[in-house]
Computed example of a mutant assay.
Amino acid sequence: MYARLYTQQARYAEAMMAQMKYYKMYDDVYVPGRWHLRLPVDTQGEWIDTWQFNEGRALDIKGPIRFPVRPKGIALEFTLCSMGNPVVHRRVVSLFERLGLKEEVQFIPVEVEGQADPWFILNTLQVIRCIDDARCEEVLYWQPEDNRPDKVGQYRNVRGLKVDPEKIGGAHIFRPWGWLVVLVVSEYVKTAMEAESITGIKFIEV
């Protein structure tokens, strides 16, 4: 009896996850008078490799990271810098802690020009192979004739991204394998961020 009950509970959990909606996170570029964060730099003013923040792994960063602000304006609690890396206010960190998502993200402290409050790069720690090619508007793959043998078989472009919920499991924030420029969150996270009135953030269902 207990085995049957466990199986029923497992199937129910799987069904609930399959019904979960997922959303691409991006910032609202139309906020009047908003700020814009530029490329992060080190203490010498040299640009920092931003791709490392898209790889879905914990990072050990040496030395402070600084974000110039051009043009200056209203600070938003969620912002994508000029290379698309999410920079968030400490309120976002506190929210993720309350949601129990500390194992899914790493918050890397940064300095933002003109700001005294703590700010962080939101570095998600998961990459999941979940793109639903059939439901996307268009997917293009690197081909042998593209003369990039290191990329053959990988995504070259994805328009109208859609994901397959059954391949995501219990993850609440991740980047989709093959299209790491996108940050995806579950409806659970979206609802919580909206309830918290985090400024600057927008969502589009995927």
Rank of each mutant, 00 (worst) to 15 (best):
W51G: 10
E46W: 04
I48K: 00
N54L: 09
R34F: 05
P32F: 09
V29N: 02
G56S: 14
G33R: 06
W35D: 04
I61N: 07
G45M: 09
Y30F: 15
D49M: 12
E55Q: 15
P32C: 03
V29F: 04
R57Q: 12
V31M: 12
D60Y: 01
E55D: 13
A58C: 04
L39S: 15
T43S: 15
L37G: 03
T50I: 03
L59S: 04
T43A: 15
G33P: 00
W35H: 10
Q44T: 12
L59C: 10
E46I: 07
F53V: 05
I61P: 01
R34Y: 04
T43K: 14
D60L: 01
T50Y: 13
P32D: 09
Y30A: 13
A58T: 00
D60W: 00
Y30K: 13
W51E: 10
V41F: 00
I61A: 01
T43L: 10
H36C: 08
G45Y: 10
Q52T: 00
H36M: 09
H36Q: 08
H36K: 04
H36V: 11
P40T: 08
W47K: 00
L59K: 05
A58D: 06
R34D: 02
Q52Y: 05
W47D: 05
Y30W: 07
G56H: 06
T43V: 00
Q44C: 09
P32Q: 11
V41T: 09
Q44S: 15
R57C: 05
V41W: 05
V29M: 02
R57D: 01
T43G: 04
L37E: 09
Q44E: 14
L37R: 03
G33Q: 08
F53L: 07
V31P: 00
G56Q: 02
R38P: 01
R57W: 03
P32N: 07
I61W: 00
V29S: 01
T50S: 06
W47Y: 03
G45T: 11
V29L: 13
V41S: 01
H36D: 06
G45S: 01
R34M: 07
L37V: 00
A58S: 11
R38W: 00
G45W: 05
D42G: 12
D60G: 07
T43Y: 04
I61V: 12
R38C: 14
W35A: 00
N54C: 13
R38T: 10
Y30D: 14
N54Y: 06
P40Q: 06
Y30S: 15
I48W: 11
D49H: 03
T50K: 14
F53Y: 13
N54M: 12
I61K: 05
G45P: 09
V29G: 11
G56C: 11
D42F: 04
Q52M: 12
W47L: 05
L37N: 11
L37F: 08
A58H: 06
A58G: 08
P40S: 01
L37C: 02
N54G: 12
L39A: 15
L59I: 08
E55T: 12
P40Y: 08
E46A: 14
D60S: 15
D42M: 03
L39N: 07
P32G: 08
R38H: 01
W47F: 15
I48R: 14
E55I: 06
W35E: 09
T50P: 06
R34C: 08
D49A: 12
G56E: 06
R57G: 13
F53S: 00
A58N: 01
V29C: 01
L59P: 02
D60T: 11
V41I: 14
G56P: 03
Y30I: 02
R34P: 06
R57V: 07
Q52I: 11
